[in-house]
Amino acid sequence: MRIWSISNQKGGVGKTTTVVSLGGLLADSGKRVLLVDLDPHGSLTSYFGQDPDGLDRSLYHLFFEQRWRDVDYIRATLKPTSLPNVMMLPATTSLATLERQVSGQDGMGLVLARSLAQLWDEYDYVLLDTPPILGVLLVNALAACQQLVIPTQTEHLALKGLERMVHTLKMVMKSQKRQLPYWIVPTLFDRRTTASLTSLKEMRRTYQEALWDEAIPVDTRLRDASHEGVFPHQLDPDTRGVRAYRHLLAMLDKQGK
């Protein structure tokens, strides 16, 4: 099992889109994939037609009564997607209260890692879709993953968010006493705008090694796929966005080995 977290403390940078695009492409190459929705907004959950307000089981419930020890409970919590070899661990809106509910209890950052350990032989890849805030859910994702992907919108405000994310990552690594490789992935790139070009240049200057040397372009087909509730490559395997995600996957896969 390989676990990748797709995270940025800034909102709207393409985290969920990246999870779905990469997950779909992995499944297309025959891998067994699990997508995990750690965002109380439940964008990923809604993407595949589930209602984050209506589900009676989600990631939230694994945090209580040590349910993460119960592999049957975890399996029964999973929901299908538009592909048979991709399952999803959904979010419910109750996740928003998690911070408060678990406050003061040690070890609550390891619940996801422990849950995934129970499914170790059942999936080849796990992709974690995280909320754009620092809190117990993001810490769970960082503690569980083996590689971090930071989608970063190519615009000036996004650079601050990137800086914050890298800082958080460094502190979690210090606390866990381990090294976690990370990749910065420029998203929503539009070569016609100066904001895209100058912010990309700025990223390159600050984060040479960790920056992917391509970018995910603006592509409305990605948005169309989310309306249809299907993986982008199912809608159009050759659209620019899907092609860029295919390149990204090849790079991540190589690095993760």
Partner: peptide, 20 residues
């Protein structure tokens, strides 16, 4: 600020009481 955050991470990433 970093001290506060590091304390927060250390607590979240400590082994569960059940394990001890």
């Amino acid at each position: 600020n970093s001290d506060i955050l590091l304390g927060y991470f250390d607590s979240l990433l400590a082994p569960c009481p059940a394990d001890e």
